[in-house]
Design a protein around this nucleic acid. Structure first.
Length: 826
DNA sequence: ATAGGGTTAG
């Protein structure tokens, strides 16, 4: 006993503590090796390894022979319990007892299996390499451990080597092989394995078939995953789960949810894995009802809210914005780790509750949990959203101090943060500081340039990344397109759009929508509608956002014809009809196309009360100058318990503007401040100034500008300029015009306003002069408007839509000049 | 055999 290795010492202690069992008593004088074997075996099977081991010690003490089978049994017990420590002690005993045991084929194989199952890769590998005979069990063990620790290629090479040595993989080996194929996304290898499975008749085994379905799912071949699944004779819940996971991982969230109801119909009880997967699907598709259903199933089936199910729940409630539910789940979870905390923190950030997020971070530290790169990137994006440069810098300093500086994800968020806080230079500095730039980092800086319309910078970066052998993906191309469109370079954008295709990258939904949106914003709405058709021809289905863009194109064209056809498409494709976003755009479109009745119809057909939808309808009345209806609808909105926001008041004021109702406007403006406690924004002041100026109340308008807590913008001065002509305040007009052109010489709207003001006055020389200045500056008029030549060399600016404010005056001037125009056009 | 968190585009 004195020669026992030190690490077996603790086991001796239980010997005295072990109470003699009845069995023991019965054979107290001559317990045979065989009876020990049975007791060791049953203790091992019930997980009482330490008890079994103490029996071995007892046997040693009684000088009983310990056969290889008994070591095998106890090692198997260690495998069940994944008890590496005890297993090592047994290994030590085996070695001590000499080669008779150590070189026993059965024991050697068991040891390989034991170390492999305990994920002790090196130990099992060494023993495996020394095996003289490699049977299917040791092969299964070694392939399994390689697969678990991520050596997938090696696992597959093992599979091949087995076959070469004519050891045939069984239904324990194949699942691991499938897993390795899935992880590597080697679908062709996987297909080969599938062939072997069919040939060797393993395909009826649920384990094998489930792992095949899983493998096809991981490789993105969902059709084959489904086929394998459908042919499983007795599908268990794991098979269902595996297919479901495949769907979710390939973005087919609806299919995953459908699978949940199918399996319930077949009487299969969902497990935590099922619910967790469905919650992921629900979160991905913003399916509030689906997610709540999944949560309910978890409760009804009494599924314990463990860490993973809890975080899936938490993730879902955070993603769909139900932060109170998320908090409830968080409080109910017993074991919380960094992931749990990160989820709630990011939930707060997504809701704009940055203070709460920071508070959670502090609590997290009090629980002795450390921030990881996810926590930090969430905080960094919080800084970006709120343009909180101080917070952003603090996070970056923390990253540097705690060696997170090389994290590529954090670098991307830092680039984004600096850009959002207004410093493109610092964003570029962070970008430059990263040595191994990945595609996402390149795209992040590109998006910064694109967002600001810095197409030159974007294009240079586009070349640079290719020089550094980072091939652009669809997002990259889309950003280049966006950068051109934001800079008004429509033709360049179209050129890139076609180059993208010839480079072999298929334009996706975002590519097409970017083009459409850019075309609309650059005054090419008709072409935008053409793009919508081409997109559909290419086999892509527009989503809610692209439909919104198409509707805005119809609005700009004031084309009821196009508008109705898009509406028809929406009705035919039911999936969109429930989208508030689309309903709102429809109301807006019909209003701007002049069909207020249809706008009302769409509005009335909507069941839920939604502020943006009400705002759209109020703005529709505003466009028509229906002040009374607009105000009445605002009252109804308040009756349903929703508070009007500053957008509502913008619409109400603009209704007054269109109707020219000064006193109503003043009343609304006062109510907004005193009754609703809304602080007027610059736009509200702008509207008021415009209303007053249009009514000829230039002095009151001027006073309001002086009183307001903002700097006046060009639009306000433009309103004043336009009002001057009515009162023939030529001097003030001249002064304001000069002021405008001095402060914003590049704003084409200024020239247009000034030119029109002079036109209303009949000062044709000034009109010509202003237009010349504009031409010299190479400024373009805004889209959707035209210059109309009224006499030789004199052009006035006329807006083709109803949104331009000075149309009435100009049109009346044109009416007066009708004779001149006619003679001129001859 | 199956399950959880952060970064890029409209």
């Amino acid at each position: 006993m004195a020669s026992l290795p030190f690490n077996t010492m603790p086991i001796i202690l239980p010997l005295t503590a072990t109470k003699p069992s009845k069995h023991h008593d019965a054979q107290a004088h001559s317990p045979s090796s065989a009876s020990y074997f049975h007791r060791v075996s049953s203790l091992s099977k019930s997980g009482e390894i330490r008890e079994a081991l103490s029996l071995l010690t007892e046997m040693d003490f009684r000088k009983l022979r310990i056969g290889p089978e008994i070591y095998g049994e106890i090692l198997q017990g260690c495998v069940y319990e994944r008890d590496l420590c005890t297993g090592k002690q047994i290994h030590a005993r085996i070695l001590k007892n000499g080669d008779f045991y150590a070189k026993n084929e059965y024991i050697e194989t068991k040891l390989v299996i034991f170390y492999a199952k305990c994920d002790a890769f090196e130990a099992s590998e060494v023993l495996f390499s020394k095996l003289r005979v490699r049977n299917v069990y040791s092969w299964a063990a070694i392939i399994g451990v390689k697969c678990r620790i991520g050596l997938c290629e090696e696992a597959l090479m093992g599979f091949v080597e087995m076959l070469q040595n004519e050891i045939f993989p069984d239904n324990f080996v194949v699942p691991n092989v499938c897993k390795a194929c899935g992880a590597l996304q080697w679908s062709r290898f996987g297909r080969g394995v599938h062939g072997y499975v069919v040939k060797s008749g393993l395909h009826d085994c649920v384990f094998v078939a489930s792992s095949l379905a899983d493998m096809y799912g991981k490789c993105g071949v969902l059709d084959d995953a489904r086929k394998v699944f459908d042919e499983i004779p007795e599908r268990n819940v794991v098979a269902w789960n595996a297919l479901m996971v495949g769907y979710v991982q390939n973005g087919m969230n609806e299919e995953a949810i459908r699978l949940l109801s199918d399996m319930r119909k077949e009487g299969i009880e969902p497990t935590r894995v099922t619910v967790s997967t469905c919650l992921s699907a629900s979160a991905n598709m913003d399916g509030i009802e689906e997610g709540k259903q999944s949560h309910a199933i978890a409760i009804v089936n009494g599924l314990e809210l463990d860490n993973i199910l809890g975080t899936s729940n938490l993730n879902f409630y955070c993603k769909v914005g139900l932060i109170e539910y998320a908090e409830m789940i968080f409080d109910r979870m017993i074991e919380k780790d960094v992931v749990t905390w990160n989820l709630l923190i990011s939930g707060y950030v997504q809701q704009g509750l940055v203070e709460d997020a920071i508070h959670m971070c502090q609590l997290m530290r009090l629980e002795n949990l450390k921030y990881d790169c996810v926590t930090l990137s969430t905080l960094m994006s919080a800084a970006a959203r709120t343009q909180n440069l101080k917070l952003g810098k603090e996070v970056q300093c923390y990253c540097i101090r705690h060696s997170f500086a090389s994290d590529i994800v954090l670098a991307s968020t830092a680039v984004d943060m600096y850009a959002n806080c207004g410093s493109i230079i610092d964003a570029k500095k962070v970008f430059d500081s990263v040595l191994a730039k990945d595609l996402i980092l390149w795209n992040t800086l590109l998006s910064v340039y694109a967002e600001s319309g810095l197409s030159g910078e974007a294009f240079r970066l586009f070349y640079e990344m290719q020089l550094e052998s980072v091939p652009p993906n669809a997002i990259t191309w889309n950003l280049i397109i966006l950068s051109f469109l934001r800079n008004g370079q429509v033709n360049e954008a179209k050129e890139i759009f076609s180059q993208m295709q010839s480079s072999g990258i298929f334009p996706n939904l975002v590519s097409w929508t970017t083009m459409m949106n850019g075309l609309v914003q650059n005054g090419c709405s008709e072409e935008a509608i053409l793009f919508l058709r081409k997109m559909q021809e290419s086999g892509l289905r527009p989503n809610a956002f692209s439909i919104t863009v198409a509707l805005s194109a119809c609005s700009n064209l004031a084309s009821l014809h196009f508008g109705r056809s898009v509406h028809g498409y929406i009705i035919r494709n039911q999936q969109h009809s429930s989208s508030v976003l689309i309903e709102t755009s429809l109301v807006d479109m019909y209003a701007k196309c002049g069909d207020i009745n249809k706008a009302e119809m769409v509005f009335r057909s909507k069941l839920c009360s939604d502020l943006p939808l009400y705002n759209a309808m109020i703005s529709a009345y505003a466009l028509n100058g229906n002040v009374k209806e607009a105000i009445a609808l605002c009252r109804r909105l308040e009756d349903t318990g929703i508070k009007p926001d500053n957008i509502t008041f913008t619409s109400l004021l603009s209704a007054c503007n269109h109707a020219g109702d000064v006193s109503q406007a003043v009343e609304i403006f006062t109510d907004m401040v005193s009754k609703h406690g809304i602080k007027p924004c610059l736009e509200h002041y702008g509207l008021m100034v415009d209303i007053l100026a249009s009514a000829g109340e230039t002095d009151k308008a001027l006073r309001l500008i002086e009183e307001m807590p903002y700097k006046s913008d060009a639009r306000m001065i433009q309103s004043l300029v336009a009002s001057c002509n009515m009162k023939h305040k030529t001097e003030l007009m001249d002064f304001l015009s000069r002021h405008l052109l001095e402060t914003e010489p590049e704003n084409s709207g200024n020239y247009v306003t000034i030119s029109n003001a002079y036109a209303v006055e009949g000062s044709w020389d000034e009109v010509v002069k202003t237009r010349e200045m504009m031409k010299a500056k190479r400024l373009k008029k805004s889209p959707g408007c035209s210059w109309i030549r009224i006499k030789g060399g004199v052009h006035v600016f006329v807006a083709n839509d109803k949104t331009h404010l000075r149309n009435k005056e100009i049109r009346s001037i044109l009416a007066l000049l009708a004779y001149d125009m006619q003679t001129d056009s001859k």
